[in-house]
């Protein structure tokens, strides 16, 4: 009954778990380690296909994907090509929104060297820390994650001892021991914001799932690998004060005036007002993500 083959052993695994016979010796040999090994094998397989954050690719590589696919999508990609030059793919492991946001934000700071933006972000991060504290979490459970993010933020600003290059940023974003921690940091921040403003988020959450705010945060925000939706994006954008544009590439069409590509701007709340999504044109997002049902990648403007 001992499984060393990882993923191939599916059937046997299921049989064993659903029927824990009193043969304890066999069960013990099998147990948790084998399941963990199988999980690791699946992750490794997935990791070979796409790194956490991919290389920048021309938009034509996106079109190539749909060559024999829906004409609406091909048409839309053509429209995208008027405004956007490139795409950077992220791994489809359920963390793609947070991972895309992480890379896109840090890359923006690296390129713009916008000290004012970094200072502003830092003060928002301090607010997030206070939020988590006031929600009753012990400092030691989240401070490492905060410190790691702030360290990344510092390092993309040049002129201090720990400055890093674009290549180094990419390497770090692909390094699980940094990348996953930053993703978890964003998950904490998102969860904290949703809990803090639970009255505001409650109706949106009820529209998505049949869960309470508390259950939603525990089951859909805090665990790694749980996919993100507009609730997560709104909360993260508000908490960090960073506007985010999401461009939607799906098969919806508005036939009257030819094909157009929808986008939605998540504009952070100002002065305690709820997220004023799309209502003002004064703030323009420097982060653009491409959404295809179930997945987010990074888009680059021309």
């Amino acid at each position: 009954m001992q499984n060393k083959d990882g993923p191939q052993a599916d059937g046997e695994l299921e049989a064993a778990t659903s029927n824990p016979t009193p043969d304890f010796d066999d069960w013990a040999k099998f147990a948790d380690d084998d399941i963990m090994q199988q999980q690791t094998a699946i992750r490794a397989e997935e990791a070979e296909k796409t790194p956490f954050v991919g290389d920048k690719e021309p938009l034509s590589s996106l079109a190539a994907e749909y060559q024999s696919g829906s004409p609406i999508l091909l048409e839309k990609i053509k429209v995208l090509g008027e405004k956007y030059a490139a795409i950077r793919r992220t791994r489809g492991d359920g963390n793609c929104f947070f991972r895309s946001f992480m890379f896109s934000y840090l890359e923006h700071i690296l390129e713009s060297q916008d000290q004012a933006e970094v200072d502003r972000a830092k003060s928002n991060v301090e607010q997030c820390r206070i939020t988590l504290q006031s929600l009753g979490y012990a400092d030691f459970t989240f401070e490492d994650f905060f410190a790691l993010f702030l360290e990344q933020l510092e390092s993309v600003l040049q002129g201090n001892g720990t400055s890093i290059s674009q290549e180094e940023l990419l390497l770090r974003s692909r390094d699980q021991s940094i990348s996953d921690y930053v993703v978890m940091f964003f998950r904490f921040v998102t969860s904290g914001e949703i809990r803090k403003r639970s009255e505001f988020f409650e109706p949106f959450i009820m529209g998505l799932t049949n869960a309470t705010v508390e259950q939603f945060c525990k089951s859909s925000v805090e665990p790694m690998g749980e996919e993100s939706d507009h609730v997560h994006i709104t909360a993260l954008s508000d908490a960090l004060g960073v506007p985010i544009r999401v461009v939607y590439l799906d098969r919806s069409s508005c036939d009257s005036a030819g094909v157009s590509v929808n986008h939605h701007d998540f504009i952070p709340a100002v002065g305690g007002l709820p997220n004023a999504s799309g209502s003002t044109e004064t703030v323009s997002p420097f982060i653009t993500l491409l959404y295809r049902p179930g997945h987010y990648d990074i888009l680059y403007s021309k």
């Binding site: 304890f24 979490y137 459970t141 665990p223």
Partner: peptide, 26 residues
């Protein structure tokens, strides 16, 4: 709880454990 000490994650307890554990907890 099995006689070898492993805790059955078959039903109720699994829900408690999975819903409970994430990095914000100690």
């Amino acid at each position: 709880i099995y006689s070898n000490g492993h805790i059955c994650l078959g039903n109720f307890v699994e829900i408690i454990l999975l819903a409970s554990f994430f990095p914000l907890l100690s």
